[in-house]
Each structure stands twice: as structure tokens, then as C-alpha cells.
Design a protein around this nucleic acid. Structure first.
Lengths: 116, 116
DNA sequence: CCCCTGCGTAAGCAACTGCTTACATAGTGC
DNA sequence: GCACTATGTAAGCAGTTGCTTACGCAGGGG
């Protein structure tokens, strides 16, 4: 991905990494500091910090100073665009296939299914 | 992304590109050949072929031989995992703010096993 | 048979990712 | 002020992406 300028691309790109999704799932339990967040992962803190940068850039989380620590919290509406795109297209694809099924049913009623 | 072995990562990665999403949206109108698919894009046909490879690897499309041409068609269930993940987490994130009040109330009352 | 079309694939290249280790910066407490 | 903690940032490296051009292979038609 040559630097995604498109918000939707940034969101999907942020989600296309198991570590980043795991971070989001941990954050679903409540805000955490970067250190708490990084602890269970096998990678270094700077690596997590960079992942958080990607997630923040995608609008999926927010980082706010809290004294010496930095609290990371989910931004639920950050997922709205992604859900809208996926839901819309999945529904469209499926309805198309429903129509296709009907068309095929019509065709098979007219044609005979005598293939091998 | 160091070669995503995780299906969900492959799906999100495939969606994290405007060209690939545009291909999917074109395919929503019905199956097309690779040449038809590549025509409206500014990139070369091999580039589209590679994008199709990514989409196929993610399980989002299917390519089938049809004589001299290759028909590309959507695989609607390919989007199921992505929609499930996004919908589940978006709902969880949002309901979290609602449940937070109840959880706090429960805690202050003491743990009450009043769930079904 | 030969040639043309449609498409995938290999090679090569610039750009990006993701990780690491250093270092810089901000806040806390003595 | 000084040290310590928590975190972001820079530099460097291996691996991947995405594009290109060139080529290979299958199918259709003379």
C-alpha cells in the first residue's frame, strides 16, 4: 500500500494485522496505557507504539496524555465507515445471488438438466 | 504485512486498496472477464491480474475458465468473516459505554448472579 | 498448420512495512 | 537540580508490495 490517503483504505489497512486487531480487542475491555497494552505482546514497546500510530491515524483509537502515562481508548465511530462498506456490499452481493438463483431456477425449468 | 497467514488479515488487506475495492464494486454488477475489468483502470492488465490474485487469495472472488476468457465473479460469503468481526466489535465497543453503568452498579451492589 | 487474442507469470525496480536498537522528550518524586 | 519512569521518534535492516515490461501458455479461427 503506497501510503493510503483514502480513509477507508487506512481503516482496512489498520485492521489487516493480527497484532493491531488484538490491541483493539484488548482496548474493548477499557482504556489502557501503552505499557499495559504492550506487555502481553512479544514485540517491543516501540513496535506497539507504531501500531498505535497506525490505529490512531485510521481513527480507530485516541491517545490522550494522563500525567506521565498515555491513555489509549477506542473510538467506536472509527469503525462506522468500515462496517457501512462491508455491510452494504455484502448485502448487495447476496441479493444479487438471490436474483441469480431465481433466474437459474427459471432457466432449469425451461432447459433440461441432463449434464453428467 | 509479512504475508498474512490469517484469513481475516488477508481479507482486510485485500480491502485496503481503492483499486481492489473498485474491482469488487464493478463485479457487483455481474461477472466480467479480466480484460473488461482492467479496461477502466489506469494501470496495466498484469497489475489488475495481480490484484485479482490478492482478491482470490482472500476468498473474495473466483476465477473460472470460460473458453478463451476468464470469468471473474464475486464470492459473497468471502465477506462474511470481515462483516462478522467488524459488526461484533463495533457493537461491543458501543454497548461497552452502556454496560459500563450497569457493571459499576453491580459492583457497588456486590456481585449479583441475576443473569438468566 | 499458423496466427491472433486473452491472460497469467517472471524479472526488475522504487516505495513501503514492521521490527529492532538507540536516543530524545515529558512528567514524577527526591 | 537530578534521577527515574513512560512514551514517542530516528536510523537501519530484511521482507513485502505494487507497478512496469517481456514473455509463456491456452483457446479460437483462417
Amino acid at each position: 500500500m503506497p501510503i493510503a490517503t483514502d480513509p477507508l483504505s487506512r481503516i482496512f489497512f489498520a485492521l489487516a494485522d493480527p497484532t493491531r486487531r488484538a490491541v483493539l480487542e484488548r482496548l474493548a475491555g477499557g482504556p489502557q496505557t501503552v505499557g499495559e497494552l504492550a506487555a502481553p505482546f512479544a514485540v517491543s514497546r516501540p513496535a506497539i507504539s507504531q501500531h498505535l500510530g497506525v490505529l490512531e491515524d485510521a481513527g480507530l483509537i485516541e491517545r490522550t496524555r494522563q500525567g506521565q502515562w498515555r491513555s489509549c481508548a477506542l473510538r467506536p465511530e472509527g469503525l462506522d465507515d468500515a462496517e457501512a462498506w462491508v455491510a452494504e456490499h455484502r448485502a448487495a452481493w447476496q441479493s444479487r445471488f438471490d436474483r441469480l438463483d431465481e433466474a437459474l431456477a427459471d432457466l432449469t425449468r425451461g432447459h433440461d438438466a441432463s449434464e453428467a
